[in-house]
Amino acid sequence: MVQRLRVRYAKRGRLRFASHRDISRAVERAVRRAGIPVAYSAGFTPHPKISYAGAAPTGVASEAEYLEIGVTRRCDPKRVRDDLDASLPTGLDVLDVVEARVGNLADRLEASEWEVRLPGADPAAAREAAERFLAADRVEVERLTKKGPRRFDARGAVQTLTVAEGTGEIAGQEVARPCAILRMVVRHLVPAVRPDDVLTGLRLVAGFAPPSPPEVTRLAQGPLDAVTGGPADPLDPDRDHRGGEPGTAGQRVGGDL
């Protein structure tokens, strides 16, 4: 392995229903189709050297997923970006590729910014629930994990939580219904607090229950930026900075959408 490439990709639209395993199979095939000289582990059943950091759960869309590919020949990151993107199914879209220079990528993913669209939910009620949630010190929620039900605090990890109003037409219906849009920055703690845990919290503190399934999108993940209060671009430390000022992840997302 002569080089490691760090890739930011999006999981959009209907492909948000792909599980992590589905995505890793798709990426392995795309890497082969694109002719990227991926390195393989030694041994009887060699595996391509592709590692994933902090994958979003099945059903959740994301604008900021990360993986790292080890290659046996030096590659131009821009080319890899184009070739890999062309080889992946639409909806798995490569946004950025840099050469790994320093450190461990996974360590930089300290927090995520999430958008949660709640079609048909009353924004005022959502706002009130968010205020109560933020006012609490702890909000114990329960989630069913593979090892059975687990209780933990959903409040401590939440850095910011705001509510906006949108018009979301609910699937298939012509009339636009009100739509509450939550935005939150959540730190990656153990156990992980996910947007649906925060929604559970809103139900517990204020009886807030959206009428249809939430549409969740991860907008960014990265190191917590003290100035913005949100995650910064985790690939910045790998970038050649002579080209200009590094942007924050939030700005980049705006450009990509």
């Binding site: 209907r14 492909l15 229903f17 792909a18 599980s19 589905d22 099945t58 059903g59 199914p89 639409t90 909806g91 609910i170 699937a171 249809s212 399934p213």
Partner: peptide, 16 residues
Amino acid sequence: EPLLPHVQKPIQYVGG
């Protein structure tokens, strides 16, 4: 789409 979050392996129904 709104039904898919409630079923096993929703990816099998989305095509693409």
